[in-house]
Computed example of a mutant assay.
Amino acid sequence: MASSDKSSAPASTLGGDQPIPPGKTMSMERHMLDKGAQMLQSLKPVKEMSQHACTFAIYSHDMSRQIETHHYVTRISQDFLQCAVYDSDDSHGRLIGVEYIVSDVIFEALPPEEQKLWHSHAYENRLWAQIKSGLWVNPRVPEAVVKPELENLGKTYGKFWCTWQADRGDRLPLGAPALMVSPQAVNLGMVKPELVQRRDDKYSISTSAIQKSRVEFAEPEWLNPQADYWKQHGKGFAIDIEPTEMKLRAPFP
């Protein structure tokens, strides 16, 4: 497991007020090389990202820490999506993690221990958390366009690993990945109002108005109790990360 001991590296590379990682400014030569590569390479996986969604996430091990997240979504199949998660939609946004989203059909087939790592996109009182509350939005895309996708997302489960805790000032991805969970309060009571307001101001939207427009969305008929382990136990699932050496060892005959 990667160490989180900050004493082993210069403080200037780990935290502080500067949001960008340490390193020299990009040279003109490097810019030219990158531009040339873009012209010659297909970058097919990146080009398959079909939508940008903005929502919020909470650290399962410390629920006082809430962050705005920007998901760049690739649909692999009707039942499986993969998302590169950034801390902003700016050109220099930091890649802070990855989320996988599966349909209820796939989730039900997972082993119970695996299901504990996933969060539902619905709430136990049958009101969708991110979707019906208006927390999940597709910036600058009309609601009518994304409505079918939003209705499908209400019956899905996500597994979100945060690999870069930029919200605490880390200028590099440090330590083990953190398991994230979905805000689950339709009245927005679980998400800090200032986070929602800042997002609303940036995109000139009203989350409360979006919530009202989604009130008629159909609700999932069944939520697997194995999901949202954090909600049932008041803490994140205990993650046992083996040292790299152990993972590389293979038994000999």
Rank of each mutant, 00 (worst) to 15 (best):
A53H: 10
E29Q: 13
M180N: 04
I67D: 02
S27N: 07
K212D: 15
V181A: 10
R126Q: 11
S213T: 10
G189L: 02
R140L: 11
S120C: 07
E143T: 14
P243R: 14
V73C: 12
A178P: 00
K192I: 09
V196H: 03
H119F: 09
N125I: 05
K147L: 09
S4T: 11
C162E: 12
R126D: 10
G16L: 00
H233Q: 11
A53G: 08
S88P: 05
C83W: 09
E108C: 00
V145E: 08
H70P: 04
M180Y: 03
A178W: 02
S50I: 10
T55R: 02
P148E: 09
A109R: 11
K6Y: 00
Y72D: 02
G93K: 03
E194A: 14
G236W: 02
A11G: 05
R140D: 09
E48D: 14
I58E: 01
M39K: 11
N125R: 00
I205Q: 07
S27D: 08
Q197G: 01
H31E: 05
Y229W: 12
E245V: 08
M26S: 07
K155S: 12
D240M: 10
Y123W: 06
V98R: 13
L179G: 01
A166D: 04
K132S: 08
Q184A: 15
G189Q: 10
E149N: 11
D89P: 05
V145D: 04
F237K: 15
A2D: 13
L95I: 06
P173C: 08
Q78W: 05
Y123A: 11
L95M: 08
K202G: 01
G236F: 04
S50M: 14
W136E: 07
I241D: 11
L117V: 01
W128P: 03
I76R: 09
E68W: 01
Q130N: 12
M26H: 00
V191F: 03
V105S: 09
D79C: 04
Q78I: 06
H31P: 01
D89I: 02
H70R: 07
C54T: 15
H121K: 10
E99V: 06
V145R: 13
H61D: 15
K155Y: 13
Y59A: 14
S133F: 04
R94T: 04
R249L: 13
P19W: 01
E151M: 14
V98D: 07
S88D: 06
H71Y: 10
I131Y: 04
R94A: 11
I101P: 00
K192R: 14
Q130V: 12
A238P: 13
V137A: 09
I239Y: 01
E68N: 10
K155L: 02
Q82P: 01
G15D: 04
M180H: 00
E221T: 15
V46S: 10
M246G: 07
V85P: 01
Y100D: 08
S206K: 08
K147F: 00
